[in-house]
Design a protein around this nucleic acid. Structure first.
Length: 826
DNA sequence: TATGATATCCTTTTT
DNA sequence: GGATATCATA
């Protein structure tokens, strides 16, 4: 009897699933059922008796991991829970935590986010008296990131003459010293940055053979998704772990390698067969997602890349519509017209907003689109890099929490030592920093001693300052004590109130303050959610009793979240906006790719880099292949950039699509107005032969020296305006531009209950008298989605909510928060 | 020490 | 244009 898992797989998919005992390279073209093969393979392994905890499955995003897990669960049931599955970063940060002491780290290490890293670099450069116009934090960090991802430690770096010469030429001769100091300081602070999670894992596996051995023996099977986007550090981790059994299976598509800026090495997938000579190779070439037109069009573009693994993608689906290419006057018009186009498309096909996506190259392109969508009342969701955690109030909360977990975290210390203001100035902070450096300890440790000596201080001024610092130290200490006896949520609330952060935002009732309070509440929500999830897992026997949710784990999971991991708001139909990068792995019926212009897509920088253009082309390929049915590409004549109008030319990629698959509203090769202007103003500086073809590329930065282009451009804008005004007029008359009033309500922002927090605000924190009455009563019968039926035993008022103790028939007594528990009265 | 004014970067893409 | 950093002033 054949396994059900194999049903419906095509021959090559099937082979890829069956060969789980062999190291495998699965080259999976876009839309070829890659995830299905991967999940089927794992499910099949489980069915064949492989123990789930012996499987290590690494994905690119947490979301991908969750999706895979739930699919496998559907196939083979709850055993899937025990598979070690997640992103490289989340899986290995957990492993690092378990073994932190082995590499001289504290188990309570915190993770520095890029802004912490940059701040630290800034301090280091200041201390070393390096000119900050050359030693820019971002630049330093990206170089450090490059080094770490290539497993180059400061020592190896210093020994490499190429690097040293490079740095000298880049006028940052002391980079290696900065790098060294940075790593030391991180360690001293008990902190790791994102790249450390991979680098330190490698150090751990290199220096501790017993640890290596343990995990080698544990993980009989290793599967890696999106292998084309792994960097050297990740590659070596896989090599090391796979050395014993070598049952490494990687899945990827070289044509979709788009993360080289993060150190991803396309070579990893290109040379997999050399690394694992016994590997079997499977090619998934049939695209089940897109129309033939889309697949063929995408092929015609990607064919221009030199370095590729041989494969021939095809679709047996419908031929489908041609790819539409539209030209617009400026980014505003583009946004308006694309919004109209999406709306019309969705209406005409009776489709859902969920079926369409607008993709762009850079995040900042979303602004124009957002306002166009808002005006039309089109509901949308936007995936944007970590916006939530970028909020000041969230960072402040997290800084206190980080300090509680790991007091040596200097960046957290500096952030909140005087927030909310308690009279500790810059000078004081600097002095603490100096003491810390003298004693080679963290700032916390520096003041820790000081606090006990406060009263013995002679100097009056010093005494006052010291008292203030002591106040802060005691605050954090007392929070640390509270933490032990409290639930995550209660502790979070304690932090918000005791630090007076909440009070800060309650002083004045402004929209900004309300949103800050909302965000803090959301942070607390996530704590509660985390606790509940964990409790459910323990109840289901998926985790041991001793594995209750901890603050550390919550924080870690939070730090490693990506923009793609945000929770889907159930059943809300929204149009999605995101970068092409974020769209990898997703699919939509209708795809709109905006800003297909030179210097934007492809980006200016990519054109200058060695393999930059090929990567950009792959990115374009990714964008095209997201579509199931239709694609519309658009570009503008002008775009608002750096507060100025700049001319743009259509992207070269538009012309690279075989014309058979394209429907262009205007001749792509027609000289653009921009080109006309160039001709009006001849430039003697252009001597290169390319000049003749330059009609389609903007002069900005390319060869054009000085700031002429901008000035020229500006003076000609009026002229252009006139020309386009005529077009506008025509459009208006055709009725193209006017928003249709018959359309949907405005995008309503989800209303969260912030009642609780604002209430606490006013009076003494936690005065229960101000709470609205509890919606449940003792003795009442309720039903919970997970725990089933139960009777309310006790109700206890808390600061912002009620604790409800419920005796469930099947799960026993449980304490729930009224606000969060999804209870229905019976 | 805290606030408001000016200067300066910026725009790739993200775990 | 806009966010953030640094500076000048009370």
């Amino acid at each position: 009897m054949e396994s059900k898992i194999l049903e419906g797989l095509n021959p090559s998919q099937r082979e890829a699933v069956l060969s789980y005992e062999h190291p495998s390279l699965i080259i999976a073209g876009a839309g070829s059922g890659k995830t299905r093969v991967l999940t089927s393979r794992i499910a099949y392994m489980l069915e064949q008796g492989v123990e789930p905890y012996r499987i290590l499955a690494l994905t690119f995003t947490n979301k991908a991991a969750e999706q895979m897990r739930s699919r496998i669960e559907q196939m083979v049931g709850p055993r899937s829970k025990y598979i070690r599955m997640g992103t490289f970063h989340s899986v290995f940060s957990r492993i690092l935590r378990e073994n932190a002491e082995r590499i001289g780290y504290t188990q309570a290490f915190t993770i520095y986010e890029p802004s912490d890293c940059k701040n630290l670099l800034k301090t280091i450069c200041k201390e070393m008296n390096l000119p900050d116009e050359k030693y820019k934090p971002t630049r330093l960090l990206s170089r450090i990131s490059f080094a770490k991802n290539s497993l180059i430690t400061p020592a190896t770096y210093a020994a490499n003459t190429t690097f040293i010469v490079e740095d000298r030429q880049a006028q940052i001769p002391h980079f290696v010293d900065v790098y060294d100091a940075y790593m030391r300081r991180c360690k001293l602070n008990g902190a790791m940055d994102f790249d450390d999670l991979l680098l330190q894992t490698n150090i751990l596996l290199r220096d501790c053979p017993d640890v290596l051995r343990r995990y080698q023996e544990l993980f009989d099977y290793i599967l890696v998704d999106e292998y084309q986007d792994t960097n050297y550090a990740q590659y070596i981790i896989i090599r090391r772990l796979g050395l014993l059994h070598s049952r490494v299976c990687v899945v990827g598509d070289d044509s979709q390698s788009i993360y080289s800026f993060r150190g991803a090495k396309i070579e990893n997938i290109l040379s997999f067969r050399n690394d694992y000579p016994t590997a079997k190779v499977f090619k998934l070439e049939q695209n089940y997602r897109s129309t033939q037109t889309i697949v063929d069009a995408a092929n015609s573009v990607i064919a221009r890349n030199a370095r590729r693994l041989e494969k021939r993608c095809f679709s047996e689906g419908a031929e489908g519509e041609k790819i539409a290419i539209r030209r617009f006057f400026n980014d505003r018009e583009e946004a308006d017209e694309v919004a109209n186009a999406v709306r019309d498309k969705i209406r005409r096909h009776g489709a859902s907003w969920n079926d369409a996506v607008i993709l762009y190259r850079t995040n900042n392109q979303s602004q124009a689109l957002e306002s166009a969508l808002r005006v039309r009342g089109i509901p949308y969701r936007i995936y944007k890099g970590s916006s939530f955690y970028d909020h000041k109030e969230v960072k402040d909360m997290l800084a206190y929490i980080r300090l509680v977990i790991n007091p040596r975290d200097d960046e957290a210390f500096k952030r909140v030592v005087n927030y909310p203001a308690r009279g500790i100035g810059q000078t004081t902070v600097e002095r603490i920093g100096m003491i810390a450096r003298e004693r080679q300890c963290s700032m916390w440790e520096a003041v820790d001693a000081l606090v006990s000596e406060v009263e013995q201080l002679e100097d009056k001024v010093q005494k006052v300052v010291a008292r203030k610092v002591a106040e802060f130290v005691n605050l954090v200490r007392s929070l640390a004590e509270k933490r032990i006896e409290m639930t995550l949520y209660d502790f979070g609330l304690e932090v918000a109130t005791r630090t007076r952060i909440l009070a800060e935002y309650r002083q004045e009732d402004t929209p900004e303050n309300q949103s800050a309070i909302d965000n803090i509440e959301e942070l607390l929500n996530s704590m509660q959610l985390f606790t509940e999830q964990r409790e459910a897992e323990i109840r289901n026997g998926e985790r041991g009793e001793d594995e209750a949710a901890t603050l550390e784990e919550w924080l870690q999971s939070l730090m490693l979240l990506t923009d793609m991991d945000q929770k889907e708001e159930e059943s809300e139909e929204k149009l999605t906006l995101m970068t092409v990068h974020s769209a990898k792995g997703l699919e939509y019926d209708y795809v709109y790719i905006v800003g297909c212009e030179e210097n934007l897509f492809p980006s200016q920088r990519s054109v200058e880099e060695v393999d930059g253009l090929e990567e950009e082309r792959r990115l374009f390929y990714v964008a095209l292949t997201r579509a199931k049915c239709e694609v519309m590409l658009s570009y503008c004549e002008m775009r608002f950039k750096w507060g100025e109008m700049e001319f743009s030319a259509p992207s070269r990629f538009l012309k690279e699509i075989d014309s058979r698959y394209v429907d262009v509203d205007e001749d792509l090769h027609r000289p653009s107005p921009h080109a006309l202007i160039e001709e009006d103003e001849p430039r003697s500086t252009f001597t290169r032969p390319q000049v003749a073809r330059r009609t389609f590329s903007t002069p900005q930065r390319s060869y054009g020296t000085s700031a002429q282009p901008k000035a020229n451009g500006k003076s000609s804008i009026e002229e252009l305006r006139k020309r386009f005004d005529i077009r506008f007029q025509q459009k208006r008359e055709q009725g193209g531009g006017a928003p249709n009033p018959a359309i949907v309500r405005p995008a309503a922002t989800p209303q969260r209950s912030t009642e609780g927090l604002r209430r606490v605000a006013t009076g003494a924190a936690g005065a229960p008298s101000q709470l609205p009455p509890c919606q449940y009563a003792v003795g009442e019968w309720v039903e919970h989605p997970k725990f089933g039926r139960g009777q309310v035993q006790r109700i206890e008022a808390m600061a912002t909510d009620y604790k409800v103790v419920i005796a469930f028939s099947d799960f026993g007594e449980k304490t729930l928060l009224a606000k969060f528990a999804k209870l229905t009265k019976l």
